[in-house]
Amino acid sequence: MIITLAREGDKDAFAELVKRRQSLVRHLMRRLCSDVVLADDLCQQAFLQAYLKISSLRDSNAFGGWLKQLTINTWLQHCRKRDLLQKTDEPEDLLATREQPGMAMDLDAALLTLKTSERLCIVLSYQEGMSHEEIANTTELPLGTVKSHITRGTARLQTSLSAYRDSRLGGPES
């Protein structure tokens, strides 16, 4: 009902949609980018795009997936503007982590140690539950690249998070 009203240009209905969906969108964006302020800025851009394009949404039930796609597209546009997806250099944080292998890190900090494209694939796979094919279609990355990003990213996260998990569980994991 709210989505239908928003599609017809009702601003209050759209504000209600923002209120209801903001948590999910912001959570996804914060996982993708380290900067909370930037994440919120990109979320607003995503909602703005949603407002401008919502009249073209045919199925109201598809709103959630559609909004997620817009959020990912907004992030991808941001990365493309800054050539973040093409960069092959390892992030500086990762090097810092390797110098201090025993340091406990939470998930967000560990995600920062991944390359942008790796982080994107990992978040879409683990957090959003998307299949490799869906990620490849969404990000326009080759399927093989997506698979290798997820394999390599998982291994890096496991290394980065081992100390963190140990500290949370109260001892080394068997």
């Binding site: 903001q22 948590s23 912001r26 607003q44 683990y126 957090q127």
Partner: peptide, 23 residues
């Protein structure tokens, strides 16, 4: 174990200020 970390609930509270800024 990694999936368990990702499955932890989001800690982002509903922010009315965010809604206002977006609108």
């Amino acid at each position: 174990s990694l999936q368990a970390l990702f499955d932890e609930p989001a800690q982002i509270a509903d922010d009315s200020e965010f809604v206002v800024r977006t609108m």
